[in-house]
Amino acid sequence: MPGFVFVVVIAVVALVLLALLFSFIPVGLWITAYFSGVKIGLFTLVGMRFRRVIPSRIVNPLIKATKAGLDIGVDKLEAHYLAGGNVNTVVDALIAAQRANIELPFERAAAIDLAGRSVLEAVQVSVNPKVIETPKVAAVAKDGIEVMVKARVTVRANIERLVGGAGEETIIARVGEGIVTTVGSAGSHKKVLENPDDISKNVLDKGLDAGTAFEILSIDIADVDVGRNIGAQLQTDQAEADKRIAQAKAEERRAMAVAKEQEMKAEVQSMRAKVIEAEAQVPLALSKALNEGKLGVMDYYNMKNILADTDMRNAISRVPKSDSNEEKKDK
């Protein structure tokens, strides 16, 4: 009985070790590759385990490439995987490029994938061009009328310029710039409405796809709308600004006039104060002259008579003319 238990334990341990061995050594994956025509050694798969590479991520794409007639080495796929690339996407892109007669070496496809672009999508866009729709671009013609244009840009991926080439945002920005330039050079907004195809021709002639990852095939004007009268609005704003400037200058002149008036009033008050002060000195001067004998009593009375006569004449001059005319009529 103890011998039987010992045999069972040995069998269980052997099964566990065998299961661990087969889980570490992908024998099933090696058999699949062998019958798929992919020649890869079992020790190569074990080496992938030690290099922390998932063997299925390499073998399955390699099987697809072999069935498609592509000659790709295991080392290249493994190196691309270790660099952080998507091996399966790269192989799919290479197969699609081969079917479409597009020249795409593995190194270029790997570089595109590592650059963060979808190489498979690039091949698909090369075969089936993509339509990019721009937002409404507002431009002003020479007559001051705003024109809003929406365009559809048909592009095809340029695989040779995918690495380092500008993306869709640059295409949209350049097309918008071309629309603004074309509409701005038009003499009237009516001309733009009559011939919207002029926009497409002028924009295409500018070679807007230079330095981008795309090749522009066509630019079609989808919609043209008439917006605001920008010229009239600018003139109105200018007139309002001129009005405010004139008001500000008038207010400045009024403030200067008020200040000048206040200054003159202050001078008049000062002069009046000096006159009153001088008049207050007259009695003292007369008294001093009388005491010193420089002024006689008769001279003083003559001066008083002259002053009284002067006051009388002033009073007569202040009588209203209407009253004097009525007196004459009564007489």
Rank of each mutant, 00 (worst) to 15 (best):
Lys64Asp: 14
Lys64Asn: 06
Ala65His: 07
Lys67Asn: 10
Lys67Pro: 04
Ala68Met: 11
Gly69Cys: 10
Gly69Val: 05
Leu70Tyr: 12
Leu70Asp: 00
Ile72Val: 14
Val74Ile: 15
Asp75Trp: 07
Asp75Asn: 12
Lys76Val: 03
Ala79Gln: 13
His80Ser: 04
His80Ile: 12
His80Gly: 02
Leu82Arg: 15
Gly84Lys: 13
Gly84Thr: 04
Gly84Tyr: 10
Asn86Ala: 06
Asn86Arg: 13
Asn86Ser: 11
Asn88Ile: 01
Thr89Phe: 08
Val90Pro: 06
Val91Asp: 00
Val91Gln: 01
Val91Lys: 03
Leu94Lys: 01
Ile95Pro: 09
Ala96Asp: 08
Ala96Gln: 11
Gln98Cys: 00
Gln98Ile: 00
Arg99Lys: 15
Ala100Cys: 05
Asn101Asp: 14
Ile102Tyr: 04
Glu103Asn: 12
Glu103Val: 06
Leu104Phe: 09
Pro105His: 07
Phe106Asn: 02
Glu107Thr: 05
Glu107Pro: 00
Glu107Tyr: 01
Arg108Ala: 09
Ala110Leu: 05
Ala110Arg: 06
Ile112Lys: 03
Ile112Cys: 06
Leu114Asn: 04
Leu114Val: 03
Leu114Met: 05
Leu114Ile: 07
Ala115Asp: 13
Ala115Val: 05
Gly116Tyr: 09
Gly116Glu: 00
Arg117Val: 06
Ser118Leu: 05
Val119Tyr: 09
Leu120Phe: 12
Ala122Cys: 14
Gln124Gly: 02
Gln124Val: 03
Gln124Thr: 01
Val125Asp: 08
Val127Leu: 10
Val127Met: 12
Val127Asn: 08
Asn128Trp: 10
Pro129Trp: 05
Pro129His: 06
Pro129Gln: 05
Pro129Ile: 11
Lys130Met: 14
Lys130Trp: 01
Ile132Glu: 00
Ile132Cys: 04
Glu133Ser: 14
Thr134Ile: 00
Thr134Tyr: 06
Pro135Lys: 13
Pro135Asp: 15
Lys136Gln: 11
Lys136Val: 03
Val137Leu: 04
Ala138Ile: 07
Ala139Ile: 03
Ala139Gly: 06
Val140His: 09
Asp143Leu: 07
Glu146Ser: 10
Glu146Pro: 07
Glu146Asp: 03
Val147Cys: 05
Val147Ala: 06
